[in-house]
Every structure is written in structure tokens, then in C-alpha cells.
Design a protein around this nucleic acid. Structure first.
Lengths: 289, 289
DNA sequence: CATCTGGGTGAAAATTATTCTCAACTCGGG
DNA sequence: CCCGAGTTGAGAATAATTTTCACCCAGATG
């Protein structure tokens, strides 16, 4: 749970109450320095109190300040090894040269994927995969960009014989959710965890006894709160990448790990399905010239 | 001073007096666990006392135990990241532990994005963007996974007022392609560059005078050969990731650069469109709780 | 062999860091 | 206007860390 703390702090700090937010900002301004500081020093630097810093640690799942310090140090070590720039990312503007912008974007996306991996709990991924392997029905809910991710993953799981559906139409999604029951799995994808359609469908699925899984950037969000299991995505909203677009790579990555965990558990079936589907689709490919 | 502490502890521990040596051994047995432990716990684990652990810290140049803890955490974080980086290329099998698989996947996806950026020609991206800005119609063709990418990017461009379409139905796609003309843009997405439906639609668009753009992993492929402009994607097919799935992150990345280049050229229009669409969608989000 | 000196050690006292408690304040809803 | 929920930090309580010093042991010296 301590893993990936910096990414989560970056994502969630803007939405925290005043004093907690100032603590988050002080940490993000210089994470390595924060790791080296006593709680008294960090409280002073952020214009808050030791009690507030302790509460901040609790918000992010740490028992106390020592846990946060160790996590920050671990991640700054990780970032140093990966040669990440630890400061706030450069914002692309309308006059930036395109080749520079491409470099900034690649570095940012690269980092998002690794931050997502760092904050992912393998135990939770395994639980989701195990439930999917046993499920008679799997539904994936998402709207707009998250909807495209849902469609992609739905198709992918179907190709290894997981009975999986996703719908662009919110009514169809909700109707299918109402038909779920014990032993089924419902996954809701929403960057902010506040999309009404996704909340509604996932809530319905949960009411029917399905296992509910949230894929969201915000561990503290309505979607996370109504789900039994939560898989968080690192995200960064920028000038040209707002809302769900900030988390596309991360969402794909998270669901990819679930897919791989399912495939590992159904290896023979997966291999057979690959052969069948590849052969069937061969006629949709022109010959090599 | 903190740099390389673990290495120095490893080198110097055998020559330390009895109790100090036991402290060094306990740290080396599990550095990450030591970083998470209080001085009392580590003293117990090493069969010594808190005073001895404090002295140990002094021997290695730390003012106190907090300094040692932070250094241990930093170095274990660095080592974990290096371990990930070394895992690139490892083929995930059915018995691989999931947390290791996650690390391998993150490093691999990260690398793919970096490679895609490195092989991307900013001049070609700029040409595509300029053509899109002037176009009366933009069509994006793709099937299966590439189709989901096409839909995602289509929606995204529409949100900044680019008249853009993508179709899941191959007949609809082909029919629209037949209606393109000079000054229009058609983008075909296909990992191997051999998908019949995409080739057919992009070919038809080219016959009608539209600018044709290929997004593919293979510069030498039927799709690349029938296109005026080619944007290549890095890809790696693995045990559980075949065909278009090997290039999803790369395809998204490439089209993201096109999108940003378009947005840069239409900055005012893009900002206005953001405001309008975000406001319109606000009612589809529940309030923060 | 006896004595002295220096280094190592940990128990206990002292100090500092961290966590907990609760009163006061603010804001929003009825 | 009142009430309830949430936030905050001062101060008390607790835990962690550092310092002090008495004791022990080994080696050197007379």
C-alpha cells in the first residue's frame, strides 16, 4: 500500500482540504527533502501542524510519519534510478517545438505507467483475476475514453474465452448489470471515479451480488467507495490532456495486468484460443508482399 | 554521504566489533525491512541494543537512525527500479509471480513508448496535423484493438471541433471513405499493416484524393506502401500480447502527438472547446463527497 | 602476576519526535 | 438562526531515539 505514494499524492493533493493540501504541496515541492525531515520541520514548511501531517499520512494509508518517510525515500530512489525529473511536469504550450513536445510526452507517459505499476497491489490484481476465471459473466463499464478502454479489454478477454461484455450504450450497460448475480464480476472504469453512468451500473451490479472492482485515479471517490476492490491509476492532467485522457495509458496497463493474471491461470485454454482466433482472422490479412 | 551506504555496510561489517557486526548483518539480511523498522525492533532482531544501533549509524556517517533509514529506503527503491529495468524482454510465463510480471510489463511498455518517440519524425507529425487543421473531413480507420484506438482519437479530435469520424462497421467506414476528396484526411491504423478492411478503406480514400496516413509497426507493409505519410509504432509481441495488442500504447502515443500538434495550431479554438465540453459534461459527474 | 588503559556494551536517564485528544472554528443545509 | 459535519492545531500523552556512565574484557606494560 505504501508503494506508488508519490503518484497518488500528486493526483489527490489538489482535492484535499486546505491544510492537508499544503502538506501535499510541500512534499511534492521536494520529496527527497521531505523524506529527510522530521514531522516538526515538514509541518513548519507547510504552514501546518504535526497533527495535520500525521493525518495526511493516514489519508494515504500509512500508520504514521515514519511509514511516509520511508515510502518517499524509496520512491525518490526509484525515480533517481529511472532518471525521472521529480518536479512538476513541463506543460506543453502552443509555441513549443513539436520535437520537444514529443520528448516531454514520452517521458510523461513512460513515467505514468511505471508509477501505476508501483502503486498496484498484486494481491488485489490476483483476486480480480481469480474471480474472473470463475465468473459466468464479466461486465466492464466505462464512458467516453474509459468506455473505449472497456471495449478493448472486453474484446481481449473474450478472445481467451472469458464471457465478457461492455456497452457503449448506458442503458444496455445498466440492463446487463441488473442481470448479474453472485459469482459474476463487474469492473467500473472512471478516471475521477465520479461518472454517473459508471457509478449507476457498478452500484446495480453490486446490489445483485457481483464482485465490484473500481479502476480509478482517485482512491477517495464515490466509485472507489462503492467497490469491494480498487485498482488505482496514476494520472496527470495537463493543458491538452484533461479528464479521462490523463489516465488512458494507466488504465490500459492496469487492465493488462488483470488480463495477464487471468491468462496465467487459464494457460492451456488461452493458448488454444490464440491459435483459433489467429487462424480465423488470417483471411482478414493480406499476404506479405 | 548517503550514497552507497549499503555497499559500505557490506564491505565493512565483517571487520566491526561483535555487536556492531550483528547490526550490520541484520541490515544486510533484509535492508527494506530494516528501513521499515524502529530502532528498538532492529536492535532486538540483531541481539543488540538501541544504543549500539545508534553507534552503528555514527560509524557510517549518519547523525542518527532516521538518516540510516532514509538511506536504506532510497537504495532499496533504486535497486527495485534497476531490477525492473533488467527484466525487459523476459517472457512472462504461467508460473511467474504476478508482482514480477507487473514489473516486467511496466518496464516493457515504458520502453515501447520511448522507442516510439525516438523513431517518430516530428516533420511528418506536423504535416498530418496541418492537413487535419485544414480538412473538411477526417476519417480514422481501424479494426479490433486498432479500431478502439481509432474511436478514442476520433472522439478526442471531435472535442476540439475537428470534423472527425471512425466506424466500427467496415461497410460504413468504406462508404464514408468513398465520399472523401481533396483536402480531406484519412488515417489507417493497423499493427502489421495488413488488415484488409483498413487497407480497403484507406485505399479508397486515397483514390478520392484524400491525404492518406498510415499508423503501423511495419514501415514495409501494404498499408505503409499505399499511404503518402507513415507514422511508425514500436511493438513487441509476447506470450500474452499478440497482434495489435503489442502496439496499443505506441499507437495511442503516436496519435496523441498528432492531437497535440493540432491543438497547438488551433489553441484558441481548443481552449474554448474544452470549456464548453467540460461544462456540458459536468452534470454527468456526481459531486465530490 | 598485577595493574592500568582503552574499547565495547547496554541499562537507564534524558531528550526529541510522534501520536492522540479535544475544544474551537467554519461552512452548508434545514 | 441553529445544528451537524468536517477541519484544525494546541497541549497532553506516548513512543522513539540519543546520551550518559558503570561495568566488563582484552591487551600491554611494569
Amino acid at each position: 500500500m505504501a508503494a506508488g505514494a508519490l503518484g497518488r499524492i500528486q493526483t489527490e493533493t489538489p482535492a484535499l482540504p486546505e491544510a492537508l493540501r499544503r502538506v501535499g504541496e510541500a512534499i511534492l515541492a521536494d520529496p527527497a527533502e521531505a523524506a529527510r525531515s522530521t514531522i516538526i520541520t515538514l509541518a513548519e514548511r507547510s504552514g501546518s501542524s504535526p497533527a495535520t501531517v500525521t493525518r495526511f499520512c493516514r489519508v494515504f494509508g500509512f500508520a504514521g510519519y515514519a511509514g511516509l518517510r520511508v515510502a518517499l525515500a524509496t520512491e525518490t530512489g526509484r525515480a533517481a534510478q529511472a532518471n525521472w525529473d521529480m518536479g512538476v511536469g513541463h506543460e506543453i504550450g502552443p509555441t513549443d517545438p513539436l520535437d520537444a513536445a514529443i520528448g516531454v510526452m514520452a517521458a510523461a507517459d513512460s513515467r505514468l505507467i511505471q508509477e501505476t505499476a508501483a502503486q498496484l497491489d498484486a494481491g488485489t490484481v490476483a483476486k480480480v483475476a481469480e474471480a474472473i476465471v470463475e465468473a459466468r459473466r464479466v461486465l466492464i463499464f466505462g464512458v467516453s475514453t474509459s468506455g473505449a478502454v472497456a471495449g478493448m479489454m472486453g474484446g481481449r478477454l473474450r478472445r481467451i474465452r472469458v464471457p465478457c461484455w461492455s456497452h457503449a450504450d448506458a442503458h444496455e450497460a445498466l440492463a446487463d448489470a441488473a442481470l448479474l448475480g453472485e459469482g459474476d464480476v463487474a469492473i467500473g472504469i472512471s478516471h475521477q471515479g465520479r461518472t454517473r453512468e459508471v457509478l449507476e451500473s457498478l452500484g446495480e451490479a453490486g446490489d445483485r451480488g457481483a464482485l465490484t472492482v473500481a479502476v480509478t485515479s482517485f482512491a477517495r471517490s464515490p466509485l472507489a467507495e462503492l467497490s469491494e476492490l480498487v485498482l488505482t491509476t496514476a494520472s496527470r492532467e495537463t493543458t491538452f490532456r484533461l479528464g479521462g485522457l490523463a489516465a488512458v495509458h494507466s488504465q490500459l496497463f492496469v487492465l493488462d495486468t488483470v488480463y495477464v493474471a487471468v491468462a496465467q491461470r487459464t494457460y492451456e485454454q488461452t493458448n488454444e484460443a490464440f491459435e483459433l482466433t489467429i487462424r480465423a482472422l488470417e483471411s482478414h490479412r493480406v499476404e506479405r508482399n
